[in-house]
Amino acid sequence: MSTSSLDMTSAEDAAGRLGISRASLYAYVSRGLIRSFSSPHDPRQKLYALEDVEALAERKARFRRPAVAAATALDWGLPVLETSITQIKDGRLFYREQDAIALSASASLEETACLLIGGLDDTAFRQSSRSPETFSDPACGPYSYVTQAVRLLSAPAPRETRSAEVAAILRLMAAASTGRDPGVEPLHRHLANAWAAPQAADAIRRALVLCADHELSASAFAVRVTASTGASLRNAVIAGLAALSGPYHGGMTERVRAFLEAPKGPSPAGFRHRLYPDGDPRAQALLENVPLLSSDATILRAAASASGTKPSVDTALVMVERAYGLPTGAAFVLFAVGRTAGWLAHAIEQRSQATLIRPRARYVVTGETPST
C-alpha cells in the first residue's frame, strides 16, 4: 500500500498518544487496529498511520466517559447489541463463523440464507411460491427498484411456514427487478437470464453471497428496530430497503457509477471502507476473473497509486455491472437482493429476543449544539 497520502508517526509518539507501552502498540498492530509501514528512510524502522492512532485514542476515550460512549455508539462506535449472525474481525468477514469469502466461491444465495438464518427447510426453495403477486415492468436503481419491491412486499400474502416465507420474500426481491416470478430457478441464474447476461451468472452468484450481510449496517439496524416492534418479516425488509436506498449506503453505487463514467478529483467514498483498513475483501473476491472495462481497470490502478485506497464492495458491484453490460442500476439490485438474506436473519434473531429497541435521546434547547 502506498504511504504517500498517509500521515505517519513514530512508535514513541503513537504509544504516547495512546498512553500505552511499545508492547501494547505492537499488539494493536498485530490485531489490525493500527497500520504499520517500513520507513522510507530506514527499512529497520516502523512508522504508524496517524489516523489509526487517533481513531483508537478516541475510542479509548469513549470507554472512559460512559455518557460520551452512549451518545456516539450509533456512529461507528461501540457495539450496541449482540448477534450470532455475522462478525467482522481482523479485516475478515464471517457468516456464522464461516469465512464469507471462501463461502462465496461456490455457495448460492439460497444456501447462504439458510446458513445465516438457521433452522430453515431448504426444500422451500425448490417449491413454487403460493403468493398471488402481480408483476410489472423490470426495475433497477434505488428509486424505481425500491418502489417496485415495496409494492410487491406490501401485497396480501398467504400464511406460510417460516421457510416458505423466507423463500417467497427472496423471490419477490428478485422479481422486483426482472418483472417476473423466479419460480424455483436459483436467483443468480434468474437475474442473469432476465438481464440477458448468462455469462455473468457466476459473478452475480458471488455478488449476492458477498452482499448477504455485513453485521450491524444502517439497513440491518433499521430492520432490527422494525422487527423489535413485532412487525412482519416483509415490513422489516421494507425498512431495510428504505435505509439501503440512501446515498451513504447502497445508494453509493449511483455515486460510484457517476465517478467511473466521468472521473474527476479524488476517489469517492466507494474506494475505502472504515472497517477494512487494508481493503474490502469482498471487493477483491468479487472482482476476481471479472473482465473489467479498460477504463475501470485504469481508475483502480490510479486510485491505488495515488492514495493507497482500494475499492469497497460498492465500487466492485458497479464494475461488475459495467463489465457484463448489465442494466444500469443492477449494482444496487444485487446489493439489495443479496442483503435481504441478512435482513431476514436479523429480523428473525431480533424477534426471538422479544425486546423492543428503544434508545433514549438527550434533549437540547433549539440552537444549542449537542455536546460530545
Rank of each mutant, 00 (worst) to 15 (best):
F135G: 07
F63G: 15
A71H: 10
E51H: 13
A345Y: 03
S10F: 11
M1R: 03
F63L: 14
K310H: 01
S108K: 03
L152K: 06
A239I: 12
Y145N: 03
A175L: 04
L74N: 07
G342L: 09
A227G: 10
D314G: 00
R126G: 04
F63S: 13
S232W: 10
V209W: 01
G32T: 05
A347Y: 06
A330I: 03
D137L: 10
Q127V: 15
D99Q: 03
S228F: 00
R257T: 09
L326V: 03
E160P: 01
R358D: 09
E97R: 08
L153Y: 08
R22Q: 12
D181F: 05
D202E: 15
A297T: 03
P311Y: 02
T340D: 04
E54K: 04
R17G: 11
A336F: 02
L74P: 06
R322W: 02
S295A: 11
L344C: 12
A262I: 14
L170P: 01
A100W: 01
D99A: 00
P266K: 15
S245T: 14
A336W: 00
A203C: 04
T178L: 03
F63W: 13
T72I: 04
F259E: 11
A197L: 09
R64D: 14
P370C: 08
A27D: 12
D13I: 14
N193K: 13
S307H: 09
G183D: 11
S24L: 15
F271G: 10
Y248M: 15
G77Y: 00
R255Q: 15
G308Y: 01
A243G: 13
R59E: 14
T178K: 02
L286W: 06
A258W: 08
A100L: 01
P79S: 02
E58W: 13
I169T: 13
H190F: 07
R64G: 12
S24W: 10
R159E: 13
S217Q: 06
D202K: 07
A222F: 09
S154G: 06
V225Q: 00
F125E: 14
E288S: 04
Y26F: 07
R360P: 01
